[in-house]
Amino acid sequence: MACFLVPAAEAVITTIATKAIKSKEKEESVKISLSDGSVEEATKIPFSTKLGWLNKLLWGGSALLAFEHVWHGEVVPFFPFLTAVENGEVAEMLAEMGSAGVMMAVLVTAVWVGMLAVSSVVEKRALRAPKLAGEGA
């Protein structure tokens, strides 16, 4: 009915948050060791970039799901844009948004949290060797 509106709303919030965090962030450079033994200076991925991953997942998914809703005639290009509202099925629509829509947003966010955890492990692993050589962040 309109489940894609929940992840789309989250996308709006995370996009605003990304912009706000990006303006306050400072570049953090670290020294990493490469497989050939050499040490190179690199810029650590800022949190705003990582939040950008979530934005792209949410915006992209919502856009393609919106297309599916247009395909099924649940979203129309004229007011009130949602067939459920036009047919007086607002309660059912809200119930679907509260169940499927919220679950969609939760799953996408959970996957993103998993990605953060993996990237954090990769970053720590890359930093470990230079510390042994006496060079840190």
Binding site: C3, F4, P7, W53, K56, L57, L58, W59, G60, G61, S62, A63, L64, L65, S99, A100, M103, M104, L107, V108, V111
Partner: peptide, 21 residues
């Protein structure tokens, strides 16, 4: 190709929830 990956993975996750329901 990155944006395309995010878009398809985002939609796949959302349709996965649809499939569960």
């Amino acid at each position: 190709v990155g944006p395309l990956c995010w878009m398809y993975w985002g939609a796949s996750l959302m349709w996965f929830i649809d499939a569960i329901f």
